[in-house]
Protein backbone atom coordinates (compact mmCIF):
# COMPACT_ATOMS: atom_id res chain seq x y z
CA UNK A 1 0.00 0.00 0.00
CA UNK A 2 2.74 2.43 0.98
CA UNK A 3 6.18 2.20 -0.39
CA UNK A 4 9.15 4.54 0.13
CA UNK A 5 12.08 4.04 -2.18
CA UNK A 6 15.44 5.68 -1.57
CA UNK A 7 13.87 8.64 0.15
CA UNK A 8 16.30 11.52 0.65
CA UNK A 9 15.65 14.59 2.76
CA UNK A 10 18.09 17.26 3.77
CA UNK A 11 17.18 20.03 6.18
CA UNK A 12 18.40 23.41 5.02
CA UNK A 13 20.89 25.22 7.23
CA UNK A 14 24.62 25.65 7.60
CA UNK A 15 25.73 23.06 7.27
CA UNK A 16 22.73 21.27 5.81
CA UNK A 17 21.69 18.26 7.85
CA UNK A 18 21.00 15.04 6.04
CA UNK A 19 17.87 13.59 7.61
CA UNK A 20 17.18 10.60 5.38
CA UNK A 21 19.61 9.08 2.97
CA UNK A 22 18.08 6.54 0.58
CA UNK A 23 15.50 5.43 3.08
CA UNK A 24 13.12 2.69 2.02
CA UNK A 25 9.98 1.30 3.64
CA UNK A 26 7.02 -0.79 2.60
CA UNK A 27 3.76 -1.09 4.49
CA UNK A 28 1.01 -3.38 3.26
CA UNK A 29 -2.72 -3.06 3.66
CA UNK A 30 -3.86 -4.27 7.03
CA UNK A 31 -0.39 -3.81 8.42
CA UNK A 32 0.51 -1.38 11.19
CA UNK A 33 4.04 -0.13 11.42
CA UNK A 34 5.35 1.80 14.40
CA UNK A 35 8.28 4.11 14.00
CA UNK A 36 10.28 4.99 17.07
CA UNK A 37 13.39 7.01 17.52
CA UNK A 38 14.99 9.78 19.43
CA UNK A 39 13.60 13.27 19.39
CA UNK A 40 14.65 15.22 16.38
CA UNK A 41 15.67 12.23 14.33
CA UNK A 42 12.92 12.99 11.79
CA UNK A 43 10.01 10.71 12.68
CA UNK A 44 7.37 13.35 12.16
CA UNK A 45 9.09 14.68 9.08
CA UNK A 46 8.90 11.22 7.63
CA UNK A 47 5.14 11.17 8.22
CA UNK A 48 4.77 14.57 6.67
CA UNK A 49 6.74 13.55 3.63
CA UNK A 50 4.46 10.57 3.24
CA UNK A 51 1.43 12.89 3.52
CA UNK A 52 2.88 15.10 0.83
CA UNK A 53 3.02 18.00 3.21
CA UNK A 54 6.75 18.30 3.08
CA UNK A 55 8.87 18.14 -0.05
CA UNK A 56 11.53 15.48 -0.45
CA UNK A 57 14.92 15.82 -2.07
CA UNK A 58 15.06 12.46 -3.76
CA UNK A 59 13.52 9.03 -4.00
CA UNK A 60 9.97 7.96 -4.50
CA UNK A 61 6.85 7.73 -2.34
CA UNK A 62 4.11 5.53 -3.60
CA UNK A 63 0.70 5.33 -1.99
CA UNK A 64 -1.42 2.77 -3.77
CA UNK A 65 -1.06 3.61 -7.44
CA UNK A 66 -0.07 7.26 -6.80
CA UNK A 67 3.41 8.66 -6.78
CA UNK A 68 3.01 11.18 -3.95
CA UNK A 69 6.30 12.90 -4.67
CA UNK A 70 5.12 13.81 -8.15
CA UNK A 71 1.74 15.34 -7.21
CA UNK A 72 1.07 19.01 -7.00
CA UNK A 73 -0.30 20.58 -3.87
CA UNK A 74 -3.99 20.42 -4.71
CA UNK A 75 -3.91 16.94 -6.19
CA UNK A 76 -2.11 15.81 -3.09
CA UNK A 77 -4.80 17.44 -0.97
CA UNK A 78 -7.45 15.51 -2.87
CA UNK A 79 -5.46 12.34 -2.48
CA UNK A 80 -5.25 12.96 1.26
CA UNK A 81 -8.93 13.50 1.64
CA UNK A 82 -9.79 10.19 -0.06
CA UNK A 83 -6.92 7.91 0.93
CA UNK A 84 -5.40 9.27 4.13
CA UNK A 85 -6.46 9.38 7.72
CA UNK A 86 -4.67 11.40 10.37
CA UNK A 87 -4.47 11.23 14.12
CA UNK A 88 -2.66 14.05 15.92
CA UNK A 89 -1.10 14.33 19.33
CA UNK A 90 -3.23 17.46 20.01
CA UNK A 91 -6.45 15.84 18.77
CA UNK A 92 -7.52 18.87 16.66
CA UNK A 93 -11.20 18.33 17.16
CA UNK A 94 -13.06 21.43 15.97
CA UNK A 95 -14.77 22.95 18.98
CA UNK A 96 -17.60 24.50 17.03
CA UNK A 97 -18.72 21.20 15.51
CA UNK A 98 -20.41 18.48 17.51
CA UNK A 99 -18.84 15.01 17.60
CA UNK A 100 -20.86 13.71 14.70
CA UNK A 101 -19.95 16.69 12.54
CA UNK A 102 -16.31 16.37 13.48
CA UNK A 103 -16.32 12.79 12.42
CA UNK A 104 -18.28 13.51 9.27
CA UNK A 105 -15.87 16.23 8.22
CA UNK A 106 -13.84 13.99 5.84
CA UNK A 107 -17.06 12.74 4.27
CA UNK A 108 -18.19 16.33 3.74
CA UNK A 109 -14.94 16.91 1.98
CA UNK A 110 -15.67 14.00 -0.26
CA UNK A 111 -19.07 15.48 -1.10
CA UNK A 112 -20.89 12.58 0.52
CA UNK A 113 -24.62 13.31 0.82
CA UNK A 114 -25.63 14.64 4.19
CA UNK A 115 -27.69 11.63 5.23
CA UNK A 116 -25.23 8.91 4.41
CA UNK A 117 -22.36 10.98 5.82
CA UNK A 118 -24.21 11.33 9.11
CA UNK A 119 -25.01 7.63 9.12
CA UNK A 120 -21.44 6.59 8.50
CA UNK A 121 -20.15 9.03 11.07
CA UNK A 122 -22.63 7.73 13.62
CA UNK A 123 -21.59 4.17 12.93
CA UNK A 124 -17.97 5.21 13.30
CA UNK A 125 -18.69 6.95 16.58
CA UNK A 126 -20.38 3.80 17.82
CA UNK A 127 -17.32 1.84 16.86
CA UNK A 128 -15.16 4.06 19.03
CA UNK A 129 -17.67 3.80 21.86
CA UNK A 130 -19.16 7.28 21.69
CA UNK A 131 -22.33 6.37 19.91
CA UNK A 132 -24.58 7.98 22.48
CA UNK A 133 -22.82 11.35 22.42
CA UNK A 134 -22.97 12.17 18.73
CA UNK A 135 -24.63 15.52 19.21
CA UNK A 136 -22.44 16.66 22.11
CA UNK A 137 -20.02 19.50 21.68
CA UNK A 138 -16.40 18.46 22.12
CA UNK A 139 -15.86 20.78 25.06
CA UNK A 140 -17.41 18.23 27.41
CA UNK A 141 -15.05 15.42 26.45
CA UNK A 142 -11.89 14.22 28.16
CA UNK A 143 -8.62 13.96 26.27
CA UNK A 144 -8.99 10.25 25.72
CA UNK A 145 -12.50 10.68 24.41
CA UNK A 146 -11.36 13.45 22.10
CA UNK A 147 -8.69 11.22 20.66
CA UNK A 148 -11.29 8.52 20.10
CA UNK A 149 -13.30 11.03 18.12
CA UNK A 150 -10.15 11.82 16.18
CA UNK A 151 -9.68 8.14 15.42
CA UNK A 152 -13.23 7.90 14.23
CA UNK A 153 -12.59 10.91 11.99
CA UNK A 154 -9.39 9.36 10.67
CA UNK A 155 -11.15 6.18 9.61
CA UNK A 156 -14.67 7.23 8.71
CA UNK A 157 -13.95 7.55 5.02
CA UNK A 158 -12.12 4.20 4.84
CA UNK A 159 -8.70 5.56 4.04
CA UNK A 160 -6.01 3.31 2.64
CA UNK A 161 -3.38 4.80 4.83
CA UNK A 162 -3.64 6.08 8.39
CA UNK A 163 -0.87 8.26 9.73
CA UNK A 164 -0.69 8.85 13.48
CA UNK A 165 1.81 11.17 15.06
CA UNK A 166 2.21 10.52 18.79
CA UNK A 167 -1.51 9.73 19.15
CA UNK A 168 -1.11 9.07 22.86
CA UNK A 169 1.34 11.86 23.62
CA UNK A 170 -1.24 13.93 25.45
CA UNK A 171 -2.87 11.07 27.29
CA UNK A 172 -2.18 9.35 30.60
CA UNK A 173 -0.89 5.76 30.32
CA UNK A 174 -4.22 4.06 31.11
CA UNK A 175 -6.13 5.94 28.50
CA UNK A 176 -3.23 5.75 26.09
CA UNK A 177 -3.38 2.03 26.04
CA UNK A 178 -7.10 1.95 25.31
CA UNK A 179 -6.84 4.54 22.61
CA UNK A 180 -3.95 2.76 20.99
CA UNK A 181 -5.81 -0.51 20.98
CA UNK A 182 -8.73 1.17 19.39
CA UNK A 183 -6.61 2.87 16.74
CA UNK A 184 -4.75 -0.27 15.75
CA UNK A 185 -7.89 -2.34 15.85
CA UNK A 186 -9.75 0.04 13.64
CA UNK A 187 -6.87 0.25 11.17
CA UNK A 188 -6.71 -3.48 10.93
CA UNK A 189 -10.49 -3.83 10.69
CA UNK A 190 -10.65 -1.40 7.82
CA UNK A 191 -7.79 -3.11 6.00
CA UNK A 192 -5.84 0.07 5.88
CA UNK A 193 -2.14 0.48 6.21
CA UNK A 194 -1.04 2.31 9.36
CA UNK A 195 2.07 4.24 10.20
CA UNK A 196 2.39 5.22 13.82
CA UNK A 197 5.07 7.53 15.04
CA UNK A 198 5.71 7.38 18.76
CA UNK A 199 8.46 7.64 21.25
CA UNK A 200 6.74 5.13 23.50
CA UNK A 201 8.14 1.61 23.10
CA UNK A 202 5.10 0.27 24.88
CA UNK A 203 2.88 1.82 22.28
CA UNK A 204 5.13 0.68 19.49
CA UNK A 205 5.11 -2.89 20.69
CA UNK A 206 1.49 -3.27 19.72
CA UNK A 207 2.24 -2.65 16.07
CA UNK A 208 2.88 -5.43 13.59
CA UNK A 209 6.33 -4.12 12.99
CA UNK A 210 8.49 -1.70 14.93
CA UNK A 211 11.10 0.29 13.11
CA UNK A 212 13.60 2.56 14.74
CA UNK A 213 14.63 5.63 12.81
CA UNK A 214 18.24 6.54 13.31
CA UNK A 215 20.60 8.81 11.48
CA UNK A 216 21.71 5.94 9.32
CA UNK A 217 18.24 4.73 8.40
CA UNK A 218 15.40 2.49 9.53
CA UNK A 219 16.12 -0.58 11.56
CA UNK A 220 13.65 -3.28 12.29
CA UNK A 221 13.59 -3.80 16.03
CA UNK A 222 10.31 -5.71 16.24
CA UNK A 223 11.81 -8.52 18.16
CA UNK A 224 13.58 -6.36 20.61
CA UNK A 225 10.52 -4.58 21.91
Amino acid sequence: MLELRHLCKTLPGTPPRVLFDRLSLRVDSGECVAIVGESGVGKSTLLNCIAGLEPIDGGEIQVGPSRVDRLDDDTMARLRRSHFGFVFQAFHILPHLNLLQNVALPLWLLREPEGSAAGRARTMLERVGLGGRAEDPPQQLSGGELQRVAIARALVHRPHLVLADEPTGNLDPERASGVLDLLLGQIRDSRAAGVLVTHSRTAAARADRVLELRADGLHDITRRV
Partner: peptide, 16 residues
Protein backbone atom coordinates in the same frame (compact mmCIF):
# COMPACT_ATOMS: atom_id res chain seq x y z
CA UNK B 1 -3.56 27.82 12.79
CA UNK B 2 -3.93 24.38 14.32
CA UNK B 3 -7.38 24.03 12.88
CA UNK B 4 -6.25 25.09 9.44
CA UNK B 5 -3.28 22.73 9.65
CA UNK B 6 -5.57 19.85 10.55
CA UNK B 7 -7.89 20.69 7.68
CA UNK B 8 -4.96 20.68 5.34
CA UNK B 9 -4.06 17.23 6.64
CA UNK B 10 -7.60 16.10 6.08
CA UNK B 11 -7.28 17.07 2.50
CA UNK B 12 -8.30 20.72 2.28
CA UNK B 13 -6.42 22.53 -0.41
CA UNK B 14 -4.94 25.92 0.43
CA UNK B 15 -7.62 27.52 -1.69
CA UNK B 16 -10.30 25.76 0.25
Amino acid sequence: QGEFGMLRHLGFTRAE
